[in-house]
């Protein structure tokens, strides 16, 4: 596991070394603080609109950062001609795929947790108590969501260029997140049954409208669901890399 972890650490450092994360953090902060100080007819402690905006920003920026990071890992190794050096001896190809994915996921997860803490702080300051159980579940399920997205972008990075990968991954993510449960028609049946249903991991409505947490059994099922799809995407990537001549 040492080489895997070494690779992952490099990727995690990369996200905090680049400006993208800080730009996103500042942007989220500025928009949240601006939205928090809005007054509506002088009625105080209105918070749900802020949660709506905040969660959307946090989720969107986390996904964008994770996808762009995961998508450029393998192509940048090829471009810098470091892939051949890495894969010649010290690390097996399967471990390379896992290391790159793990790094991308953990980097995205770290960014998400920082954004999420900022959001929770602003929302609590504006409106008082937030449902803590649902807040934890929302974060946990979104981390599973990030895991699948990172695996998807990571797996596709062995087949596609960076820009194509980012576009395809984000389109599939948005398509399944927004319309996943309605894609049942004959023409879309393949997508409906084959692609991961990202809408499963979106508890924003539950959190904002205080519907309460979902059952532990369902959380366990969704964890297994995310793990299966992560494994499938990583396997796709590993299969391609095995046949890739460097």
């Amino acid at each position: 596991m040492k080489p895997v972890w070494a690779l992952s650490k490099l990727v995690i450092k990369e996200i905090f070394r680049k400006k993208d994360f800080y730009v996103a953090l500042i942007l989220i902060g500025v928009i949240l603080f601006y939205a928090a100080q809005l007054q509506f007819y002088n009625v105080k402690n209105i918070v749900r609109y802020l949660m709506e905006i905040g969660l959307w920003l946090v989720f969107s920026f986390s996904v964008i950062l994770t996808v762009t990071l995961a998508a450029r890992q393998f192509p940048s190794e090829i471009q810098n001609r470091t892939a051949a050096v890495l894969l010649s001896k010290p690390i097996r190809r399967g471990r390379f795929v896992i290391g790159k994915f793990l790094g991308s996921f953990l980097a995205g997860a770290s960014a998400f947790l920082i954004f999420y803490v900022l959001f929770l702080a602003v929302a609590s300051a504006k409106g008082g108590g937030l449902a803590s159980g649902t807040a934890v579940q929302t974060a946990y399920l979104f981390l599973l969501n990030l895991m699948v997205v990172a695996a998807m972008a990571s797996g596709f990075s062995y087949y596609l260029t960076v820009s194509a990968n980012v576009s395809v991954t984000l389109i599939l993510y948005l398509l399944m997140g927004a319309y996943g449960q309605t894609l049942k028609g004959r023409a879309w049946a393949a997508l409906y049954y084959c692609l991961p249903h990202f809408e499963f991991f979106d508890l924003r409505q539950r959190f904002i409208h205080e519907w309460g947490p979902i059952s532990a059994g369902l959380v366990f099922f969704l964890t297994c669901y995310a793990a299966v799809y992560t494994a499938i995407f990583l396997l796709l990537g590993a299969l391609k890399l095995q046949r890739h001549s460097l």
């Binding site: 402690n45 749900r48 996943g180 409906y192 049954y193 508890l203 369902l218």
Partner: peptide, 30 residues
């Protein structure tokens, strides 16, 4: 099973905002 999971994730009882929470609609009206 996909619809059933979706249903479980989105299921909640129908309620109306109580008087102290009705202010949450104001930003959208504005």
């Amino acid at each position: 099973w996909i619809s059933r999971v979706n249903h479980e994730v989105r299921r909640h009882g129908h309620y109306h905002l109580t008087k102290d929470k009705q202010k949450e609609m104001l930003p959208f009206f504005a």
